[in-house]
Amino acid sequence: MSALLRLPATRVWLVLIAAAVLSWTVSENSTAVKISTSAVVLIAALKVRLIVIHFMELRWRPRPWRILFELWTLGFTAIILGGYWMTEL
């Protein structure tokens, strides 16, 4: 069990689980709605990066693929957050 906990994949999984629960808690309980919703989207972007880099193993892989997925993450974050702030302003 302790060997399993020492694995990098296990640590990444624990961070992802904690981030998912944090997103839900922040969204349910916060009174600063705009800030908390933006934080939820940013946490999702962070989770996507962790999955791409560690689970899909793009960390050390051919650079163009890593750049492509980083740009995609940046793109969807901008689309969702941009739309959200345009609506709420």
């Binding site: 969204s27 709605v33 919703t37 989207v41 946490i43 999702a44 989770k47 996507v48 969702i80 709420e88």
Partner: peptide
């Protein structure tokens, strides 16, 4: 990872 985005976008984006 697609669900990781769909979840906040559909369920958690409060107005």
């Amino acid at each position: 990872l697609l669900w990781v985005i769909l979840f906040p976008m559909l369920y958690l984006m409060r107005a």
